[in-house]
Design a protein around this nucleic acid. Structure first.
Lengths: 328, 328
DNA sequence: CTGAAAGCGCTAACAC
DNA sequence: GTGTTAGCGCTTTCAG
C-alpha cells in the first residue's frame, strides 16, 4: 500500500488538488460542506502531508540541526532535551548529530545539515576545531548558527555558554570561604576557551582574595588521567580539590574512594557540573551548577531572535548557582 | 546568497541539467572532460544536493525514526549512538524523538515519522502503551518497525531486547559462585515485564543451586527509595547485594558510602548495568552487561534485514556477559 | 555522449 | 468557491 496524497483525494472526490490543499489548511475560501467532505476523507485515508514536498516547495524546512560531541552525556542530553522541547512547541524538527569530538565528523555533519537545508544550526565545537569556515558559509547562506558550550574564540558568532567566568569564580570563592590554603585545581584541555576562561577566573579569584594560598593547576584530558594524577598528588595532602567537569570529578573521586579518604574532613571537593554526578556520592559533592537544560532554552531563544531578523551578534552566558552538598 | 542548484551549474556551463546530474553521480555516459569541468565548478560553487528534492523524487528518503522515552539516559543514549553510527555508515539519517514515556507523545511522534516518510522506525514503547494500531499502519505502508527494550507482548512484531532472563541468571550465578548465603536483591517496579523476568530468573537460579540461601527480594521505584531501604537493611549484614539497574545501584552505593563499608570485604555488590555507573566507583562494581550499544547494532541489522525483504518476524535477545570489577 | 521532458507532492498566484 | 498553472530541485526514461 502506498500513502495518501492530495491528488488521490482530489480524484476520489472529483475536485482539484488545490481545493483539497486549501480545505485541509482551513482556508476561508472553501465552503464548509466541501471542507467537511474533504477532511473526512483525508482522515479516513490517513492523509499525512509529505514534508519533503512541502519543504521543497517552501524552501524553508523547519528543521534545526544540532551538533554535539556525544549524545551520551548528561550535559548535552539536557541541552538537547531543552532544544527539542522548544522545537516541538514551535513546530520545528530536530536533526541531532554527533561529532565524537572529531573535527572531521563535525565538518561532515555540517555538510549533512546543508544538504538538508536546515533552518538553523546549534553547534558545539570539537576540541580541535580551529577553522570556522564551514560555519561562515552557513551564515552566508542565511542559516543562523548558535554556538553553545564550546564556542569559537572569534567575536562574530552567536554564542551561549555556561557562565564560565562566573562558575569558576563562585567555586573559588566557596573554597576560600572555607579557609582552604592548599588547593589542587583540575582543568580540561588547555586549548579550549571554556578552559581558559575558567582557569583565568579561578586564578584571579584566588589571588585577589588571599595571598597565602598554594594553588596547583593541572590540565588533564580524561577521567583516567585525572584519577592517575590524583593518585599521586593526594599524597601531598591538599585540603581542597576543584574539578572543572564531571569527567574530571569522576576520576578524582575514584582516587579518593581508593584511598578511603573521609570527605570533607580529610579533604574538600567542589566541582562544576550539571548535578547528576555530584549527587551520586556520599557525601554529595558541592558543585556550581551549569545547566544544559537552561542553556538549551537560552540557545533556542537566541535562534528565534536570529530567525526574526536580529543581526545583532551576541554572546550570552547562563548564570550559575552554588549547590551545597556535604563535601566542603 | 542562495544555494547552488543543478540548474545554476547548467546555466553557467551552457549544459543541460541532466548532464550535470549525471556527471555529479559519475555516470559512465559523460565524457571525462565534461565531468571534470562540472565537478570543478560544483566544488567551487559548493554545490550540495537538496535532499528534499531527492527524496521527493525517489520516494525513498533514507531517514530512520527512533523513538525513546528519554534521550537523557545512558542506556538509550548508547542505543542511539549505535544506530547513529550504523546509519551514517549506510548513508541514512536519523530522526530522534522522545516520548517522555507518554503514549500521547509516542503517537504524535509516529505521526511525525509518517509525515517525513521515514524508511523505518526503531521504537521503545511507553510504559502505558497497549494499543499497537499506529505501528500496524506503518507496517501496512511497508515501513518496517523494530521494537527495542520495551516491546509489545504480541508476537507479530520485530523485537530486540536485552536478555533479561540470562542477565539475572548470570548475576545470581556469580553470587553463588562466591558462596554468598545472605543475599539482598533489589528490583524495580513489579509490574514491568522486564522486572518479572529478572525476578523469576534470579529466584530460580538461587533455588536450583543452593538450599541454604537466605534471599530477600525488594522492589523499589527510585534511587532514593533504594538508598533508604539499604540504610535499614544493611544493618542486617547481608553478604551480597544485587541491583537490577543503575538507578538502584546508585541508591545502594550511596548507603554503602555513607556507612563507609569496605567493598568487597564487608559486602559484595553486583548489578545489571550498561557499565558506566559501575565503573565510577572504587572498587569498580561487578556487573552483568546489558549494552544499549550492542542492542542498537542488533536492531540496526534487524532493520536492514527487513529492508532487504525479509518478512521473517523475529525476536532477538542480546546476550549478556559478566564484567568483573572488584566488588565481589 | 548529451538534451528534452515528465513527474515526485505540494503551494500560491492568477483566473473565472 | 473552485480550477488552472507554474515551479521548488532532482532523477530518469527516451530521443537523438
Amino acid at each position: 500500500m502506498t500513502s495518501t496524497t492530495l491528488k488521490k483525494i482530489a480524484e476520489v472526490l472529483g475536485l482539484s488538488i488545490s481545493t483539497i490543499s486549501r480545505a485541509l489548511k482551513n482556508h476561508p475560501d472553501i465552503s464548509d460542506k466541501t471542507k467537511q467532505k474533504i477532511v473526512e476523507l483525508a482522515n479516513a485515508l490517513e492523509y499525512e502531508p509529505n514534508v519533503n514536498a512541502i519543504h521543497l516547495r517552501n524552501k524553508s524546512n523547519n528543521v534545526f540541526g544540532i551538533i554535539v560531541p556525544s549524545i551520551s552525556n548528561y550535559f548535552y542530553d539536557s541541552f538537547i532535551a531543552a532544544v527539542e522541547e522548544e522545537s516541538r512547541k514551535n513546530n520545528y524538527s530536530l536533526m541531532i548529530l554527533q561529532s565524537g569530538d572529531k573535527t572531521d565528523a563535525e565538518i561532515q555533519n555540517i555538510k549533512l545539515c546543508r544538504q538538508n537545508r536546515i533552518t538553523g544550526l546549534f553547534s558545539c565545537l570539537s576540541t580541535d576545531t580551529k577553522n570556522y569556515e564551514a560555519y561562515s558559509k552557513l551564515k552566508e547562506l542565511n542559516i543562523p548558527v548558535i554556538f553553545f558550550d564550546k564556542v569559537p574564540e572569534e567575536g562574530n558568532f552567536n554564542k551561549v555558554t555556561v557562565g564560565d567566568t562566573l562558575a569558576a569564580t563562585l567555586a573559588a570563592k566557596a573554597i576560600l570561604s572555607k579557609n582552604k590554603k592548599n588547593i589542587l585545581a583540575f582543568f580540561g584541555n588547555e586549548n579550549l576557551s571554556i578552559t581558559k576562561k575558567r582557569v583565568a577566573a579561578f586564578k584571579q579569584t584566588c589571588n585577589e582574595n588571599s595571598e597565602e594560598i598554594k594553588l596547583k593547576i593541572l590540565h588533564v584530558s580524561s577521567s583516567l588521567e585525572a584519577e592517575n594524577m590524583a593518585d599521586k598528588l593526594l599524597l601531598k595532602k591538599p585540603d581542597a580539590i576543584f574539578c572543572m567537569s564531571d569527567e574530571i570529578l569522576t576520576g578524582v573521586m575514584k582516587s579518593v574512594l581508593k584511598k578511603r579518604l573521609n570527605i570533607p574532613y580529610d579533604l574538600s571537593i567542589i566541582a562544576i557540573s550539571n548535578g547528576y554526578i555530584p549527587k551520586l556520592y556520599y557525601p554529595e559533592i558541592t558543585y556550581v551548577e551549569t545547566s544544559g537544560y537552561k542553556l538549551g532554552k537560552l540557545a533556542f531563544s537566541s535562534m528565534l531572535a536570529c530567525l526574526n531578523g536580529s543581526t545583532f551578534i551576541q554572546e550570552i552566558a547562563a548564570d550559575s548557582i552554588l549547590v551545597e552538598g556535604g563535601s566542603m
